[in-house]
Design a protein around this nucleic acid. Structure first.
Lengths: 341, 341
DNA sequence: GCCTCGTTTGTTAGCGGTAACATGCGCATC
DNA sequence: GATGCGCATGTTACCGCTAACAAACGAGGC
């Protein structure tokens, strides 16, 4: 920067100003600085800038996994919103464990991000302590804070939170109600990856079935393994082995549902005639399976975009809104009724 | 840090040493510093550390897209290898364009990463200039440099490169040869997302067909759109409309192939009896389609892991190996013969 | 012509660590 | 008992940029 300053015949400070806030220097100086800067191939060090200005222009983004398309879409939304504003996402992978999340968050915080985006509200007490102590904005995604009573559930105690997501419970309820409305009577559930969001979906589904008087706990098949097409195929067989008369199944994620559909095709089970199948998330291809899959479209990318927007607002205003102005943005979901039900 | 130093009764320098290289201080001082550090909740600022030591402990990772599972797997491999060593990946999305890549690289470099991982070898001259000027290690992935003659192709001129990948050409050739070996005579090609890797695969396939005297350029259907299940379904129909007698198809990515399979099921086209179908990448679920998809398993995650390893070696040794010791790591591929062929 | 004000540029002093060198100490050596 | 050496710790001087304040300058008002 000193070299550029010398070449442009100004002070280093003026170079800094000319490049960061061109409107604060004279037109003529700006041109000279830009020319010299380009000629010398000057690239300002963001590290030094960060140290001097206390703004790193980075945002910590914690997601459970890279192999789950849901969080990739979330990340894509975040990334495409942050990038144009000059922010660099720092991706952290928590592997679905609140403890690992706390660890990852700690290491991310050492990088002094200007903001934090988390997945879910299922954090350790230690994480909540960390968050409470932060002076940077924090947004929680994919889930919604409990309305009206922040102290009650979810463990976030007296920490006002900013959430962007949708009601996993309601979405699960919608699927259950839909299967009931289709006249199905022996409705089963298959779930993997039992994180808190999955459990809420299952809770919703369960409630819908209870409300209709059709809930049978024995038809719930829940395993902790990560979801996959292979697992869906396997669990379908297992579910039908124990309850061959099942006439509808809710699979808590589309990859499970796709695997189940494949297995049905293989076993010659007519869908939806003998068995109705519903998935969740409306992942790529769900509209193209044979038959096309009924599922719930979740606004993952939009959640990422909105979370990033809220965060940027908080970071630019320098008054973390999570403090005095907690928000709760419900982006909803859509039941996509296709042919498997 | 000064506070911790005071609390522990030592100098700031000793605190720094005690935390970063515990073996360089006495056992007793280390314990005191750790206790004080924990008690005060001290988290060293990586930004300051980076400025003082000229090491940011970050690595720029440039990939074309977040929505392509191939690069997500690559990223996952990179991430899981870098993280334990304390490195933080800085993800940059190039959108498949060499120009965008150059832009993204420039902004990433402003963060002073300690290393760079790129996808492919298809870079702009400006990118090559940038890379040549770097003193940090750089690894190119998913493709291999031209053996023996670094000056010749690929545009990287006199810049010795470190590559980790497999031969896209050979993999495409293997598919072509396989379809030929299966006795197919009217073999078509469907490709989307025409980046340089896809084109090399197509080149390999084409060569295999030429070698067998069965190449018919009219049966190539190449579109620039991003690949997807939907696109695969659509292009299958288009290909069959113009060449109804096609008896084998190579779809350059598994999502296209899955879409094609769905569409075949819908149209009542028996696979593989009337039409053989081969995909590429062995994406999740390929083994579970109906019938299971013949495809090429590519070592994407392993490429990420190996690239990160090479990079770490270069970063720790402080002598960028890309200079005096260019390497070319071929991790190969595997033709997964299943039932669609 | 002098004063005030706004605009543009310069000066100073860090941001929070770490490299490099300096110091002090205990111990083996002669 | 003096000398030298190695190890543990301290001191100094930055890393490259920017916040905050100071100064210089021209324009407009009285």
């Amino acid at each position: 920067m000193a070299d550029v300053a010398a070449a442009a015949g100004v002070s280093a400070m003026t170079v800094s100003r000319a490049l960061r806030r061109p409107d604060t220097v004279s037109e003529e100086v700006r041109a000279r600085v830009e020319e010299a800067s380009r000629r010398l191939g000057f690239v300002p060090s963001r590290v030094a800038s960060a140290l001097a200005s206390a703004r790193t222009m980075t945002v910590a983004v914690l997601i459970p996994s890279l192999t789950n398309a849901v969080f990739i879409d979330l990340l894509a939304g975040v990334q495409e919103t942050l990038s144009p504003q000059g922010y660099q996402p720092l991706v952290g992978i928590t592997g679905y464990g609140p403890e690992a999340e706390e660890r990852v968050l700690r290491t991310q915080l050492a990088h002094d991000p200007d903001g934090v985006i988390l997945s879910g509200l299922d954090h350790t007490p230690g994480t909540w302590d960390l968050l409470r102590g932060l002076t940077i904005p924090v947004v929680h995604t994919m889930d919604l804070s409990v309305e009206g009573d922040l102290m009650a559930e979810g463990g976030h105690g007296d920490c006002p939170v900013q959430t962007v997501g949708f009601s996993q419970f309601d979405a699960g309820y919608a699927v259950g109600a839909h299967l009931v409305a289709r006249g199905r009577r022996r409705i089963g559930l298959i779930a993997g990856q039992l994180d808190s969001r999955t459990r809420q979906r299952c809770d919703g589904w369960r409630q819908a079935l209870r409300d209709a008087g059709r809930h049978d706990p024995a038809r719930e098949l829940m395993v902790p393994d990560a979801t996959s097409v292979a697992l869906g195929a396997e669990l379908l067989e297992r579910a039908l082995a124990t309850h061959p008369d099942t006439d509808a199944l809710f699979l808590c994620n589309d990859d499970l549902a796709q695997g189940a559909l494949f297995q049905c095709a293989r076993l010659g089970i007519p869908v939806p005639e003998r068995l109705a199948v519903a998935g969740f998330n409306d992942l790529a291809g769900a509209a193209w399976t044979v038959p096309p899959l009924t599922t719930v479209a979740t606004p993952r990318r939009a959640i990422g975009v909105e979370a990033a927007r809220l965060l940027i607002a908080g970071m630019e205003s320098r008054t973390p809104q999570s403090r005095e102005n907690p928000r709760r943005v419900d982006l909803g979901f859509r039941l996509m009724v296709r042919e498997t039900t």
